[in-house]
Amino acid sequence: MSQLRITLTFCLVLVVTGCGSVEPWVKPYERDRLADPIMSFDRDPVSNGYINHVYEAREGARGASGSSGGGCGCN
């Protein structure tokens, strides 16, 4: 329950502060470097999906890879 409260409080703060009023400290025209493909977290989804599968099939840990994962007969 406390986790839910924290989440709700966080969301309410977002609403109350009004997202439009937040001054972006990195302006849209200053994001050219961030838009470079070498800065992408998921530059090649097919390759990322494959290498995540290689690890997931051989390790106990799983999840939080940032992608939705797939259905695999990993066990």
Partner: peptide, 10 residues
């Protein structure tokens, strides 16, 4: 609820 609040946030 989280989702609705986020959507409301605009």
């Amino acid at each position: 609820l989280v989702l609705l609040l986020l959507l409301a946030a605009g």
